[in-house]
């Protein structure tokens, strides 16, 4: 785990350390098995065409989980995720596999965010963030918000 972040050191506008992700057809298979989402929309080209998305798309819930990883990594072990939301705004298409384990050249996605608010309620210290997934062209395909409790130094 990265070093613990403290409330005193956070300012509004501060960037959350970005997280790079490469979605591959293999990753989508793993996600399907681990999440129980077996919709052929995510692995069958003819089906994806027939329902009007062109070709298999990355699961929204996988992008959600990338953003949860972005926030939980940043807040550290003593931070607590209280609220999280995201909306899927555009389709993403996975890279295909070049070898058994390595993807072909292509797009890299970046999970990013920044602090929008810092406040206390009772004796708890909260931080609100805006978060997003950007595709290889820098377009936002998923956006959302998170509220976390951050520990204080004292």
């Amino acid at each position: 785990m990265p070093e613990q972040i403290y409330w005193e050191n956070i300012e509004v506008g501060v960037e959350i350390k970005p997280l790079a992700k490469v979605s591959t057809t293999q990753m989508l298979v793993k996600w399907a098995g681990a999440s129980g989402d077996f919709n052929p929309l995510h692995y069958d080209t003819a089906f994806a065409e027939s329902v009007g998305v062109g070709k298999p798309i990355v699961h929204g819930a996988l992008k959600r989980q990338w953003l949860i990883q972005l926030v939980t990594n940043w807040m550290g072990e003593r931070g607590t995720l209280e609220k999280f939301s995201c909306q899927y705004r555009a389709m993403d298409y996975p890279r295909q596999m070049k070898t058994m384990t390595a993807p072909q050249e292509g797009e890299t996605w970046w999970c990013k965010g920044e602090v929008t608010k810092k406040y206390t309620e009772g004796n708890q210290h909260f931080v609100d963030c805006n978060i997003r997934v950007e595709n290889g062209k820098g377009e936002v395909t998923t956006s959302g918000r998170a509220t976390v409790i951050i520990p204080t130094k004292s």
Binding site: V51, G52, G60, R64, Q87, Y88, G144
Partner: peptide
Amino acid sequence: LSSVVDGGIEYEF
């Protein structure tokens, strides 16, 4: 049902 897509989510933990 085959037309369904995921629009988004809101969690409270």
